[in-house]
Design a protein around this nucleic acid. Structure first.
Length: 496
RNA sequence: GCCCCCAUCGUCUAGUGGCCUAGGAUACCGGCUUUUCAUGCCGGCGACAGGGGUUCGAGUCCCCUUGGGGGUGCCA
């Protein structure tokens, strides 16, 4: 079995594309087949600089490796379509010479006008085969005269049935077909031609792709027949939508930024820089249109390989529920090993834009402690938020007015009084460990009859400026004795 | 407009004619744990789009309606 993923380099890898890769990859790995990566860069106008590298990065982050393709090589290369132009020309030529394709002379403007006319008369436009068809000589003459000339494939006049491993049999009547373009006027092949030729020459046996390609498949089958290729097995995947039912597109991000709200994660890279684990992302998207058929929902990549079954891929479109992804991420953050979590966290700190400088320089031991302090977090971004106060200078702690009022000043300054009372006791603690600090605080509570909250909260506000932090004794242990005392003193000086 | 695909809790889904009084996850609500924010644990709410058939029996098969989606590019 040989399967492929064939993105066009128009930007980062979309989350929907990620699911397509995942399913293809799973099928290949399970069958001990090959997974091939091919870059479909036949549209020069849409090409985005660096996006190929970005797609590789995203795939590697997800842990989806390819057996053949860019940066790996293989016996069926090159794996960039832009480097296979001669191959396509050869095949296009064969079709023209064999009478299966012909030069078409309409300009884009003429076609546009025909489409508009068809729309006005409430009909759909279908390209009418010219009668007579331009001869090869006419086509070549027009081309050398500088006119835009394309090559169109003669679609056969018969119904075509797509045998789909997900959808079943889908038959399209011949009156739905038209002679479609296989070579553009810039001499590049269209997607249809390049895809069919490459799939055949690369020995692809199974194609799982988005449902937007279902109507293309009869075209591809006809091309395969004309070229003497066999038809691979096809499977068309459902579409993934936003929670509101709209299409998940990169434009959502621009829209959100314009409206001043946080842009939603759309591309794989967005999830990476927002602090998700690839394990969680993979697990979550695997469940969009697939299920192992029982009540088990959590699995790592290797478990998915074992469980995956093409006949368990669903037909229904799915909405992307970020809340559920978030829950998966929390779950996976406790499921992976501490070592693995640390590696992922460091990757995040590198990529994330708002990583505090001091955090960037923190060593592994400190980062690992941050993670364990924050156990139960949603994303890595929350870890930054929750521990950020540890990474600012003691004299730069900003006190949130609400916190000061509620915890320190209420009840005639009970909180401040508590801090004052606490200060000497904390000063005299010689063994500065989490356990000892916890012991000290509970002793204080017992002596004074105070609830732990009344003791811990003022300290929390004093050292963080807010009412939120990891558990108080661990936080103090982390901060260290000197910095703790400095912060408490500063707080007392500012608010007494 | 035409062609095609799809249809179970808000969302992701299990269900392949009797195991369905429809299961799980997530969200939401309530309780417990707790020094804060979370996490965790327990409980609750909550769906077969509508209408016709077929059958002893239908969420499961067929038809229609409705709704959603895809296609109708010298994009992929």
């Amino acid at each position: 079995m040989r399967v492929r993923f064939a993105p066009s380099p128009t930007g980062y890898l979309h989350i929907g594309g990620a699911r397509t890769v995942l399913f293809n990859w799973l099928v290949a790995r399970q069958a001990n087949g090959q997974f091939i990566l091919r870059i479909e860069d036949t549209d020069r106008s849409r090409h985005v600089e660096d996006s190929v590298q970005k797609i590789f990065d995203d795939l590697r982050w997800l842990g989806l490796d390819w057996d053949e393709g860019p940066e790996i090589g293989g016996d069926f290369g090159p794996y960039y379509q832009s480097q296979r132009l001669d191959i396509y020309h050869e095949h296009i030529d064969r079709l023209i010479q064999g009478g299966c394709a012909y030069y078409a002379l309409e300009t884009p403007e003429q076609l546009q006008a025909m489409r508009e006319a068809a729309e006005k008369s409430k009909g759909g436009f279908r390209y009418p085969r010219p009668d007579p068809i331009p001869t090869i000589e006419q086509g070549e003459a027009a081309r050398s005269a500088g006119q835009p000339v394309v090559v169109r494939f003669k679609m056969p006049d018969e119904a075509i049935t797509v045998v789909d491993d997900i959808l079943g049999e889908v038959t399209l009547a011949s009156d739905q077909f038209e002679d479609f373009v296989i070579q553009k006027s810039d001499m590049f092949p269209t997607y249809h031609l390049a895809c069919v030729v490459d799939d055949a020459l690369m020995g692809i046996t199974h194609v799982f792709r988005g449902q937007e390609h279902l109507m293309n498949t009869p075209k591809h089958i006809a091309l395969q027949k004309a070229l003497g290729f066999s038809t691979p097995r096809y499977g068309h995947l459902s579409v993934i939508f936003n929670p509101d039912g709209s299409k998940m597109s990169k434009r959502d991000k621009e829209k959100a930024i314009k409206q001043g709200v946080a842009p939603p994660e759309i591309d794989v890279h967005d999830f990476r820089s927002a602090g998700y684990l690839p394990e969680a992302v993979l697990n979550f998207i695997s469940l969009l249109g697939w299920s192992p058929g029982n009540d088990i929902e959590r699995f790592a990549l290797d478990e998915m390989v074992a469980l995956f079954r093409v006949d368990r891929i669903g037909k229904t479109n799915a909405r992307f529920d970020r809340d559920k992804l978030l829950a998966f991420n929390t779950d996976w953050s406790t499921r992976v090993s501490p070592t693995r979590l640390l590696v992922a966290f460091k990757d995040f700190l590198n990529i994330h834009e708002d990583t505090p400088a001091m955090m960037r320089e923190a060593d592994d031991a400190i980062l690992a402690r941050m993670l364990s302090l924050c156990e139960g977090f949603r994303t890595f971004a929350d870890v930054i938020k929750k521990t950020g106060f540890l990474f600012v200078a003691d004299e730069s702690i900003e006190f949130m007015p609400k916190a000061v009022k509620k915890v320190l000043q209420k009840k005639e300054g009970a909180g401040l009084a508590m801090l004052m009372q606490l200060l000497p006791k904390i000063e005299s603690l010689s063994d500065w460990s989490g356990e000892k600090i916890e012991q000290l605080l509970s002793d204080i509570c017992e002596e004074s009859g105070e609830k732990l909250g009344n003791v811990a909260q003022p300290i929390r506000v004093a050292i963080t400026g807010s009412t939120v932090s990891p558990s108080i004794h661990e936080t103090l242990a982390f901060l260290g004795r000197d910095r703790t005392l400095t912060r408490i003193r500063r707080c007392l000086a500012m608010h007494s």
